[in-house]
């Protein structure tokens, strides 16, 4: 008898959890849609900017900018790790932290000095638990990263890079490839690379547009390059948010399904227990009746 009551109670508890995980799944879904829309909204800006840099690099006959120079000796390597503020998102934070850990160990092996900037409460708590020193904790950027929140971070990085205080900037975050695929990556933000125009002069020479530049191309580039760094960092932040919501959606879907399975199993167990009890009672009654006659 007692066994049945326990089963009913457990089933009730699992049903409650099921309700919660399903709600969280739906919330994550809605947030994902919103975050995805925002991430896509910044694509035109990024693409246009990249195109302009390429055009200008051609017009300016190559680029030489302090942000692109490989630093000489000295300075520390800055590593920024973007994690989430909230949990319950499956392996999301674990994957990023593992990759970031590998990267940092690589730096340590090379004997390089590094500085660790942690974004997101989950990562901060993890590192505190693991006893790793952090140079900076950033926990005020929420689920909707705004450009004016990210901009000062990027500006500070560039300033310190130019001064030679830091020799490189790497950002570890979850890259959003598609809804079905997100991969943790460590992206090099500074020094800037990959901006050299490809040498295929014959093909592109005739198609090239003769722009009117104001001010001249070199000066425009000086303005454009910092803008690309800022947008790259912003993109990392918004990608991270989208990936986080996807991870939460997947985790919560799995949790909801698991809860459904458990409910089914508990119901079966309960029914069996009930049936056994009824059979026992019947046997009792029949046995009693037989004894009387």
């Amino acid at each position: 008898m007692a066994n049945r009551r326990v089963l009913v109670q457990r089933r009730k508890a699992v049903r409650n959890i099921h309700k919660i995980t399903r709600t969280m799944q739906m919330i994550a879904n809605a947030r994902f849609q919103a975050a995805y829309k925002r991430a896509v909204a910044s694509k035109p800006y990024t693409e246009k900017l990249a195109k302009l840099v390429e055009d200008l690099a051609k017009a300016a006959k190559g680029i030489d900018h302090p942000l692109m120079r490989e630093p000489e000796e000295g300075g520390v390597a800055l590593v920024m790790v973007i994690t989430s503020t909230r949990g319950l998102c499956g392996g999301y934070n674990g994957n990023i932290l593992r990759l970031a850990g590998e990267h940092i160990r690589g730096l340590e092996e090379k004997g390089e000095q590094f500085e660790l900037h942690m974004v997101g409460k989950k990562g901060v708590t993890y590192l505190k638990f693991a006893g790793w020193p952090m140079d900076r904790e950033i926990t005020d950027i929420g689920e909707v990263p705004r450009f004016d929140q990210v901009e000062p971070l990027a500006n500070e990085m560039m300033e310190r890079f130019i001064k030679g205080e830091i020799r490189s900037v790497d950002v570890a975050y979850m890259n959003f490839v598609s809804t079905g695929k997100q991969i943790p990556v460590v992206e090099r933000l500074l020094p800037l690379s990959g901006l050299e125009p490809e040498i295929e002069e014959e093909a592109s020479a005739e198609a090239e547009v003769q722009y009117e530049f104001s001010p001249d191309p070199t000066e425009l580039l000086n303005e454009l390059l910092p803008a690309t760094v800022r947008i790259a960092l912003f993109q990392a932040f918004s990608d991270a948010v989208v990936s986080e919501q996807v991870a939460r959606m997947v985790a919560m879907t799995a949790a909801t399904e698991a809860a459904e399975d458990i409910i089914k199993r508990l119901t079966q167990q309960y029914n069996r227990a009930r049936q056994t009890a009824i059979t026992m009672e019947l046997l009792d009654i029949v046995g009693g009746a037989n004894a009387l006659s």
């Binding site: 302009l52 200008l56 003769q210 009117e212 530049f213 104001s214 001010p215 425009l220």
Partner: peptide, 17 residues
């Protein structure tokens, strides 16, 4: 950056800060 620029249809390619 150095003052106002007016744009009409058919303007030559321009890139400005």
């Amino acid at each position: 950056w150095d003052g106002e620029v007016g744009i009409l249809k058919g303007r030559a390619p321009l890139l400005c800060k």
